[in-house]
Design a protein around this nucleic acid. Structure first.
Lengths: 193, 193, 193, 193
DNA sequence: TATGAATGAGCATTCATTCAT
DNA sequence: AATGAATGAATGCTCATTCAT
């Protein structure tokens, strides 16, 4: 019956995502999060030492699993085209879930310790390297032209996905239908093949 | 020979860019801006009714001229390749100047009125349409393949530029040498030709 | 073989002395005392209704026995000089044990109920009367000059002991050697003989 | 017409003495002090960076002048007896004015920085040395017996004054008549002559 | 009886904004 | 027009106390 410490912490984190996403860091009040989680204000402080700390842990919580899911796609036996399709679908789901919070994380870096910023940067680099790896595998499998500039290609894929999915979700809202990956994938294939 | 109201206002705006960029909206204090502009705190309120208002005017001030400069490139007599080169160079300069502020604008939309957000959105759409126009001209001039998905292509170009330049500026800092546009341009050409 | 209620209460009191003395009333946390006593925070409330109540009981606990020990010296068969020596030795031990707490008690009277303050005042008066009694006995035994102002003399003895021992303990710390009573005693004797 | 910064600061200090003395450091609210001084809460923070800082400045403000007044008495041409009388009178006035605050200062040393504590300690040492100086001058002028233990005598004088005046003020309140110095002085003279 | 997770009243502090000079 | 002293609403955080287990 009793809720474990870990569950309670996760519960607060989930609610903080909602509130931070809706209000932004500064407008969000600890009390709002507590009310949302249906607990007392002080209880939040049993699990997180400060508002900033809660924010940081939420950021880590949101980014957790991102790269490992990405890697699963990259190292799969799929052809480059199917990988791109899987990538779009993954971004589609991820951005819908984390759209508001993602923007905040990018911007409110003032709140994050150097350590945390470095960690985020490292995660981004990992993402970049995974995409480069995908390109390498593609070259090996003769699915990607061998003269490609890997760095440019990787940045282009990430930038295009962000821009495209970002726009779609922004216009359709989080509840819209799954994005059609076909046009995006065919454009990217043209560029890398 | 007192300076005009307009000059004083511009002076405050310029200083507010510095301070907002360095501190972010919430950490930036009106007093900091006043000190930076070498005027009294109260004087700021002679020109702007509130901190938020100042922020909004600063946003407009920063985005002003963006699309018109872009259009000048698009409608020029340059070939598609040279347009892309000019685009990269323009982004290079613009992002260096507005890197910090650009992130803030994207994120701190909570601060902006619906009207202002709509205006920003319309400006973004204008940018998008300008890039699409560039593609259309390219198709007409047989410099771009005619079967291209114009929306995807435009988003890809914008997304790629953002990601590429963003990364370069982040790593090299604002003072680094001009970015080499060649690899980026050749990648994009491959995708659209 | 559970310990009795009384023992547990004494145990908490002893630990509260340590913590109150080190931290002062306001900085001392009930949890600190509980941790020090190796019990749960809630358990403290089984024995004391509130932090203030605990503080008050600690004050009473510390002062308990003070006057009775003093009286033992006063009514003893010792001559006035030996009584003064015994007094210095007693103060020496007492102040070492209760130095930190003594200062607190004097100051944080805001915390004490009128009743408690009155009780402390009465204890002080008792102390004063005991010293006066010592003087009276001394006069009877022709060890003290008969024209002495008893009140002044008593206050002087108490004040001098406090000042002298307080300074010595403050400088030497609680672990220093026993104070040499000779110079103090000879000075006081000169005044009252 | 306009109040100077210095006057405003002094005004806040004076009011803080009242409030700190009545409530103690912890119960005293900045708002109370502001209300008492008939100013806004925020104004206090224009003059003092924090509540603790205000407390420290108040302590310094209260102790300021103490030793210099004392010295004036010590180095005067008065005989030892008249010096003691002047001393009692000075203590009488000083303790009436600072009775509540004096107790607080002694106790709430937790609030004071090491630097401030050291300063207080040095001031106390100065006081002690001044009294020793008085004794030395007395010996020179053959008003004090030459075999006296200077340290003990100084501590005894200070301790006796504190105890005696403290008791009198405690019983009579701050509004009572001037203390009769005669019995105290004659007792102390007996001890040192 | 013992526990410690949950609670929320209470307060120091900040800073945008006002307004008398 | 320019100033900066004064203001007070707003909020993060602490910790004594409660109470379900």
């Amino acid at each position: 019956m009793a809720i474990t410490k870990e569950e309670r912490k996760r519960q607060i984190l989930e609610m903080s995502i909602k509130v931070f996403a809706k209000q932004g860091f500064h407008k969000a009040k600890i009390e709002d999060i507590a009310i949302e989680a249906n607990i007392g204000k002080g209880t939040v402080y049993q699990y997180f030492t400060s508002k900033k700390e809660l924010f940081k842990e939420m950021v880590a919580y949101c980014m957790m699993g991102y790269n490992s899911q990405l890697e699963a796609i990259i190292v799969s036996q799929l052809g480059i085209k199917d990988k791109l399709v899987a990538l779009v679908d993954f971004y589609d789901v991820y951005i819908r879930e984390h759209f508001d919070i993602a923007q905040m994380i990018l911007s409110q870096t003032e709140l994050l310790s150097k350590e945390m910023k470095d960690w985020i940067m490292r995660e981004k680099v990992k993402t970049h390297l995974l995409i480069e790896k995908m390109i390498d595998i593609g070259i090996e499998k003769k699915e990607v032209r061998p003269d490609i500039e890997r760095e440019v290609a990787a940045l282009a894929i990430i930038g295009t996905l962000n821009q495209y999915l970002g726009k779609k979700v922004l216009i359709q809202g989080h509840k819209g239908p799954k994005i059609d990956s076909a046009p995006l994938v065919s454009f990217l294939l043209k560029a890398i093949q």
